[in-house]
Design a protein around this nucleic acid. Structure first.
Length: 203
DNA sequence: TGTCCGATTGGT
DNA sequence: CCAATCGGACAG
């Protein structure tokens, strides 16, 4: 696939069956969410985690769990799965694969690119390096909440664009974070990040 | 309806 | 290390 900066990623990017590949390929892509005035607020994806329900104990769709919350993960790839955790944070995921296969990729960190002043206002007094270096933080900075759950990633509210080509040598992988309950799935190296990037949540 | 807990964060 | 804070999942 040629890298054409500024173009929305096509549907075929998301519907591929290998969620690890889709996750890896999200590194270097630009996440764009226009604000209420239509201003572009965006950041380059620098850290992600793949969740491979129904066999993945760490996934909300483990065991084929199909509830009000997980319903969007069962849609065809190319929509957003946004959920609320810990009583105060939203988490933004990209749904992949075909309909009824609940695969998703959690976006864990971004490097701010456009609308940084808007991000600063939303994140209050935090220094710039803490604007988007975590899954909850980036949702605050980007203005992502439950309203975007199920949003079409080729629509006008939230989408992804080609941005920077990330070579294999610049990527790293390791165990996912915050899934201590996932037993043998805890150690799967399904977290991918851009090596040495200052906005990755943890090295 | 009641209980338990979380794909996190920020402060001690 | 630990509290904050509340919706989701599930048992009864």
């Amino acid at each position: 696939m040629p890298l054409t900066k500024g173009r929305k990623l096509p549907h075929e990017f998301y519907t591929r069956s290998n969620v690890l590949k889709v996750a890896r390929d999200l590194l270097g892509k630009l996440l764009v969410v226009p604000d209420a005035n239509g201003n572009r607020v965006s950041g380059m994806i620098v850290e992600v985690e793949a969740y491979r329900g129904p066999e993945d104990r760490a996934s909300h769709a483990y065991g084929g769990r199909r509830t009000n919350r997980t319903e969007t993960m069962y849609r065809s790839g190319g929509v957003a799965y946004v959920y609320f955790v810990y009583g105060m944070y939203y988490q933004f995921n990209v749904v992949s694969n075909a309909a009824n296969i609940p695969h998703a990729i959690l976006v864990r960190a971004l490097q701010p690119v456009e609308g940084i002043e808007i991000m600063r206002q939303r994140r209050h007094s935090h220094p710039d390096r803490n604007l988007t270096n975590g899954p909850g933080k980036l949702c605050i900075a980007m203005g992502i909440d439950k309203q975007l759950d199920g949003a079409d990633l080729l629509g006008s509210h939230v989408w992804l664009e080609d941005f920077e080509k990330i070579s294999a040598s610049r990527t790293a992988k390791g165990a996912r974070i915050g899934i201590d309950y996932a037993e043998e799935w805890i150690e799967k190296p399904w977290r991918f990040w851009i090596r040495d990037n200052a906005f990755v949540s943890r090295q």
